[in-house]
Simulated assay, not measured.
Amino acid sequence: MKKSLKIFIPVISFFLIIILSLFLAANYLLKEALSPVHPNDAPDSDYYIGQPEKPAPDPSDTVETAAYNSFNASYAWLKENSIKCSTQSFDGLKLNAYLAKQKDECHNYIITVHGWKSKPKNISSYAEHFYQNKFNVLVPGMRGHGWSDGDFIDMGYFCKYDIKEWCSYITQNDPEARIALWGISMGGTTVMLTTGLELPQNILCAVEDCGYASAWDQLCYRLKIEYNLPAFPLMNMADSFIKSKYNFSLKDVDCLEALKKSRTPILFIHGLKDDFVPPDNLQRCYDAAACEKKLLEIPEAVHARSVFTDSEKYWSTVDAFLNKYFFPQEEITE
């Protein structure tokens, strides 16, 4: 009996250590992916109070330098030319946004959706471009990202309902509104998920830039790349925590299923040197989409840098796509 215990206790201890280690690793993964960004910032303040901005990049990195300069300049424009507006989500969260309206009467709107742990500042240059091209521009602060309410990041699952709510906000204030959606990274995923919902006819088209097809696949990929760990069982444990704590599953964040139901024309964009969201997500989403669709590849672009890598190709394609639905008489000939 004593001999059996001597063998049994170390074995049980070993398995308990393994289980505890897996639990801690899964919990770390969960916090890393879904922890909110400064949820207590005041709604009328700038983002990331007390947190320094990233330093200016090395001037030799022309793409990052272009992005850095553009974001800073355009954010000043956005704050100066926008009003701040609010609405309420289906689950009672206060959602805040910038709204830049044309000085003359205009019923064309575009909603721009920022990415994971990002902020409106980082898409302000896109907003300024759309404004210059005859759109009213709504730039929401997404739930869990510091300005709008929300105590976790949902990878796009609940955000899609927030974007639909912003569409309702616009149409309630302007019944003649015609709306486009644009999103980057997690914002691109959110846009794709939104198009899978039942949307009113005044949602004319959408543009997604470097979104991931599936939150499950994306986190499995990052787990392998960053920690060289297999998905099983860490992802399964983490997803169990998410289901019990946040009432959704990473597997529910599935653009492929949403796109099968989409009737909104979509432009899909991806940089072919993207090592954060692999470029194969582009073809997977494009192939799944049941709607009218167009594809744009930027060969040298890394994640979320397509517009700064080949600005002319990016904007000529995006503008032509939007013109097709909003300004057909002005459509750019490719």
Rank of each mutant, 00 (worst) to 15 (best):
V11C: 06
L16W: 07
I18V: 15
A26N: 11
H38N: 14
I49Y: 06
P52R: 12
P52L: 14
P55W: 03
T62A: 07
E64V: 06
E64N: 14
A66Y: 06
Y68I: 06
F71A: 08
F71V: 04
F71G: 03
F71D: 02
E80V: 00
S82Q: 08
I83T: 14
T87W: 03
S89G: 03
L93D: 07
A97N: 12
Y98K: 09
L99P: 12
Q102S: 11
E105H: 10
H107D: 10
N108L: 04
Y109R: 05
I111T: 09
W116P: 01
K121W: 00
N122S: 10
A127E: 06
H129S: 07
Y131F: 15
H145V: 08
D149F: 00
M155D: 00
Y161V: 02
K164D: 01
E165D: 13
W166T: 01
Y169T: 04
A177H: 01
G188Q: 03
T190Y: 05
V191I: 07
C210W: 04
A213P: 00
W216R: 12
L219G: 05
C220Q: 11
Y221I: 10
R222H: 10
K224P: 05
I225S: 03
A231V: 08
L234V: 14
M237W: 14
A238P: 05
F241E: 08
K243Y: 12
K243E: 12
N247D: 13
S249D: 11
L250D: 04
K251A: 15
D252Y: 02
D254L: 07
C255A: 15
L256M: 12
K261H: 07
T264M: 02
F268D: 05
I269R: 01
D275S: 09
D275M: 13
F276K: 05
P278F: 15
P279C: 05
P279V: 03
Q283N: 12
Q283D: 13
C285I: 01
A288G: 06
A289M: 06
C291G: 04
E292I: 05
K294I: 00
L295Y: 02
E300M: 14
R305K: 10
S306E: 14
V307I: 11
V307P: 03
S311G: 08
E312P: 11
E312D: 14
Y314K: 10
P328Q: 06
T333F: 00
T333Q: 09
